[in-house]
Design a protein around this nucleic acid. Structure first.
Length: 924
RNA sequence: GCGGGGAUAGCCAAGUGGUCAAAGGCGAACGCCUCAAGAGCGUUUCUCGUAGGAGUUCAAGGGUUCGACUCCCUUUCCCCGCACCA
């Protein structure tokens, strides 16, 4: 960035101090907001776009005379900063490197990061500083963080309502858990196995003497087909008391169950080999034998497996292996499911068909999947087992087993190992007394869907995804043991989960600057009931202040648009609808959402940990804020993914410089006005309309294209037509004034600076240009279009000519061809138009010439853009005088002698090929 | 795997049945200007073409249609989400 730009930005900043504070007024409001940041690091250019695009929209509506509220706050609840501060305290090298080198945190501040609050405080301030630097027109008077006592009071109020509505309930919940850290672990905390999912197995309890042997299965309905159990003879199993009952299972399984809600005590061991050939029994399959199998993994579920050879390829293969050695030949598969495309024993069939050799065959896994999916999709239980489709029977059987036959649940990862960052193995732990938000509630879902129908969603493609998300959401564990945040008002042992304390804060913004003046201890739920719901209670404190807040809320709410990247659709953006629907009456429900695409840096994902980031502040320092803004806006529409490439940014800088010098020159222009001035002014009206429309639709890129390049290219034509003559004084003033205002939302610094020499006041609050239909001059525009097209044709001919040209003759079409063209264009019946036209006396009399003209005009009609055809029909141009008055220009422009004549006055054979809007061109 | 969205010239992108060889920007080439460089301006940028034209294209394959980048089907590839995490 040059010193000049730096000085410019600094001087503009002074003018903007405090001016974007939004206050309710007589004006119509426009309230937009963005998902607030979690300030655990520095902003990069991807964040930049997230806040700059809404700023462009905010600036646009402000200029259109709306009272605009664009607030910002900081989300500091949750656990990440706690981890960060621990790592810094521990002197973890990669953490130190990230914060010291990439985020450029000074050493003394870094030292203070051992307190997590210092991290978020530091970066909140950084965010505000850099956002301001980027020219964001944010009302900072409403800034808050989510750990302030005042905000906590607001959250408590919100949660009272959620609970009163019956949406918060208690339950147990399986989570990934690290015994060493004594904490649940998320994806980010995992060294290995971050894709592992928790699977829910049903434990089928086989009776073995006085003990149970539990077998874990995902397919409880197959219990009817069990022919034997599998045990690994090389493994030593344990006997233990589980919740007062004797179980036999692998040691690993015992350890796992201890985390899953069971009281477990080891009482002895038993070698697997000892279990071989022993009998177990279950009411649903009778007595079966335990057989040896080496595929049984003691670290998978219970370490003992029930065998259903009819429907499970592994079981069949293991059995076949044994039987081929002449053992257990009396055991036969027992079928229980009919499947489309398979016979009595699908697994047997599949295995034999695939030529599986033994139980170590690598293709077995895939084969198993195929059989399982087929059975799940089309399988039906035998009549004697209920006859229901497998997908329904599965749950029903599990239920019966649980209720009557001692079955329970065991959770297990689908892939292993799962390892915590600390190096310890991760287990599935069942957390108790968890609070849940019941997003599964169909009635609640319905409320949200009904409201979604009425919402404005940009781009429209995301609508389907929102509906899918609502359908798909299950109960959400919303209480936490660790992290920063607000405590559950009725159960202060628990903290409110961070995504769940950030769903209605858009309402809090409306009162954020006023509520600071009230002692938090006075902020009872009744106070908020009054502010947000208008509910009166006796003895409300600070009545006057509350009235002020009530007024603000009523003025601003509901918000007009919320902006966020698309990755938040499946949680935050949908959550906030759920919460709004419960807490606020219909008239305060969100009006719209704009969903952004993701950001790339040099074609790769931006990632702080991989060092693939470009900090927003660096970008601003390197190129200037306006350049960064214009590049980000120009790289794609908000909902498209975008890619930041440094080498492309510098040309944006040049464009802004070109704009500045054009405006500066134009302001000193002192020429007289002429036809071409009328043309330019006419064109500007169209540009104003198009830019306005694009902005209204959040098409910021389209708006930029139209406002910058659209006007620039017309201006270039204007300069070309003017030649050396000075621009028209009034026209240039008008152009500059409109142009600067149209670009002000996108490059506000540049425009603010230019504006000071053109008008009083700030361009940020100047009125948005309005198109003036009376200044549209259709015939002048048509005339210029004719010239442009003709020049293009001349150039196209010159390009392929070999001999040096000297003179160009332009032959204008006779008016009867215009009549033909008009008839064709207006004809309702496309197919017979030629015949109809040839019926006309005056045309028919011209014979072959007329017939040719009809064909050519038809052709031409199809080639010209339809809107142009319409315009030239309504304003048939006087081609002769257009070319006569432009002859001098054409001559200079082409550097050739130009002659204009009517085609009937011209002897050249080509003269007859003249058509409407396409004069014959003869170059010699 | 499941759900949602995509694939257009070197790159970013506009374009939803004819008006499309396909807007605009970037990049590149050439020309003008200049002592020169840069900037600026102009032209070109799928292939061919001594007259404003012709030919082959819009991920791949198939289909509907007088006609498809645009509608339908299949395949391949890319992005987002798949949860207790901001």
């Amino acid at each position: 960035m040059t010193d000049e730009t730096q000085a410019l930005e600094a001087s503009v900043h002074k003018k903007w101090e405090g001016v974007f504070i939004a206050t309710p007024s007589e004006k119509q409001k426009f309230y937009l907001n963005v998902a607030y940041p979690y300030p655990s690091g520095a902003m990069h250019v991807g964040h930049g776009r997230t806040y700059i695009v809404p700023d462009v929209i905010a600036r646009f509506w402000r200029m259109r005379g709306r009272e605009v509220l664009y607030p910002m706050a900081f989300h500091v609840t949750g656990a990440p900063v706690i981890g960060i501060s621990k790592r810094i305290a521990r002197n973890d090298e990669s953490a130190i490197k990230l914060y010291r080198d990439l985020y450029k945190v000074p050493q003394d501040i870094l030292d203070s990061f051992t307190d997590p609050l210092n991290i978020v405080n530091h970066f909140s301030n950084e965010y505000e500083r850099v956002m301001t630097k980027a020219g964001l027109s944010i009302d900072w008077s409403r800034r808050f963080t989510t750990v302030e006592p005042t905000y906590s009071k607001f959250i408590e109020w919100q949660w009272h309502h959620l609970r009163a509505a019956g949406h918060v309930n208690k339950g147990a919940h399986p989570v990934r858990y690290c015994p060493q850290c004594e904490n649940p672990v998320g994806d980010h905390d995992l060294l290995e196995g971050d894709k592992a999912e928790i699977q829910k197995f049903t434990l089928i309890m086989f009776t073995y003497g006085d003990a149970f042997i539990p077998c874990a299965t995902l397919r409880p309905e197959t219990i009817y087909g069990v022919t034997n159990l599998w045990v690994n003879p090389e493994v030593t199993y344990v006997r233990c008391t589980v919740d007062g009952k004797e179980w036999i299972l692998s040691r690993q399984a015992m350890e796992k169950l201890a985390f899953q809600d069971h009281e477990v005590t080891e009482t002895g061991t038993i070698p697997g080999s000892e279990l071989v050939d022993k009998k177990v029994s279950h009411p649903f399959c009778g007595e079966v034998t335990i057989l040896p199998a080496f595929f049984v993994d003691p670290d998978m579920a219970t370490g003992l497996v029930m065998s259903v050879p009819a429907h499970a390829p592994y079981d069949y293969i293991a059995l076949r292996d044994l039987q081929q050695k002449g053992k257990y030949t009396e055991i036969k598969p027992v079928g229980l499911i009919t499947v489309v495309g398979y016979g009595e024993f699908p697994a047997v069939e599949a295995v034999e068909k695939a030529d599986i050799i033994n139980q170590d065959d690598p293709n077995l896994e895939e084969l198993t999947q195929t059989v399982y999916s087929a059975e799940h999709a089309t399988g039906k239980m035998y009549e004697k087992y209920g006859g229901k489709p497998v997908k329904f029977a599965r749950e029903e059987v599990a239920e019966v087993l649980t209720e009557k036959h001692h079955s329970g649940i065991m959770y297990e990862f689908d892939t292993r190992p799962v390892v915590c960052r600390c190096g310890a193995r991760v287990f599935v732990k069942v957390l108790h007394d968890q609070w849940f938000l019941e997003y599964s509630d169909p009635a609640w879902k319905k409320q949200v869907k009904d409201h979604l129908e009425d919402m404005e969603l940009v781009p429209p493609e995301v609508r389907a995804e929102f509906f899918r998300t609502v359908d798909w959401l299950k109960d959400w564990a919303c209480s936490r043991r660790i992290g920063l945040g607000t405590r559950m008002p009725w159960d202060p042992e628990w903290l409110i989960e961070p995504l769940s304390d950030s769903t209605v804060y858009m309402a809090y913004y409306t009162i954020a600057s006023r509520i600071k003046h009230i002692d938090p201890s006075l902020l009872t739920p009744e106070v908020f009931d009054y502010i947000f719901l208008g509910k009166e209670t006796e003895n409300l404190p600070e009545r006057e202040r509350l009235d002020g807040m009530r007024k603000e809320f009523l003025y601003w709410y509901p918000y007009n648009f919320r902006f966020s990247a698309k990755d938040l659709i499946s949680n935050h953006l949908t959550f906030q609808l759920f919460h709004h629907c419960t807490i606020f009456p219909k008239e305060f429900l969100p009006h719209g959402m704009v969903v952004f695409g993701m950001g790339l840096l040099n074609g790769a994902k931006m990632s702080s940990s991989k060092g693939n980031v470009y900090l927003l502040e660096d970008a601003i320092n390197d190129f200037g804020a306006d350049t960064v803004r214009m590049f980000l806006v120009g790289s794609g529409e908000p909902w498209q993914d975008f890619d930041w490439r440094n080498e492309l940014v510098s040309s944006t800088r040049k464009q802004i410089e070109r704009f500045i010098s054009t405006i500066r020159e134009n302001l000193t222009a002192n020429g007289p006005e002429s036809d071409i001035d009328r043309w330019l002014i006419s064109r500007i009206q169209t540009h104003i309309s198009l830019v306005t429309k694009a902005m209204e639709n959040f098409q910021t890129r389209q708006a930029l294209q139209e406002a910058f390049f659209g006007i620039e290219s017309d201006f270039k034509w204007y300069r070309r037509r003017k030649g050396l003559a000075a621009g028209g004084q009034e026209t240039m003033k008008y152009l500059s004034s409109v142009w600067v205002r149209l670009l002000a939302p996108i490059i506000p610094y540049t425009c603010e600076d230019l504006w000071k020499d053109m008008s009083t006041g700030l361009v940020s609050f100047a009125s948005w240009p309005e198109p003036d239909p009376s200044r549209i001059d259709v015939s002048t525009e048509i005339a210029e279009e004719l010239l442009v097209k003709t020049i293009e044709d001349i150039e196209s001919i010159l390009r392929i000519m070999r001999n040096p040209p000297r003179k160009v003759t332009i032959c204008i079409t006779p008016s009867w061809k215009w009549d033909v063209f008009t008839l064709i264009a207006n004809a309702e019946d496309r197919k017979n138009v030629i015949r109809d036209v040839m019926q006309k006396e005056d045309i028919k009399s011209r014979g072959k010439e007329a017939a040719d003209a009809v064909k050519q005009c038809t052709n031409l009609f199809h080639k010209l853009p339809s809107d142009l055809v319409e315009r030239i029909l309504q304003n048939r141009p006087d081609e002769l005088s257009i070319f006569q008055s432009a002859a001098e220009f054409l001559s200079k422009d082409t550097n050739l002698e130009i002659e204009v004549s009517k085609s009937e006055d011209c002897r050249h054979m080509k003269a007859g090929s003249a058509l409407p809007f396409k004069p014959a061109i003869i170059i010699e």
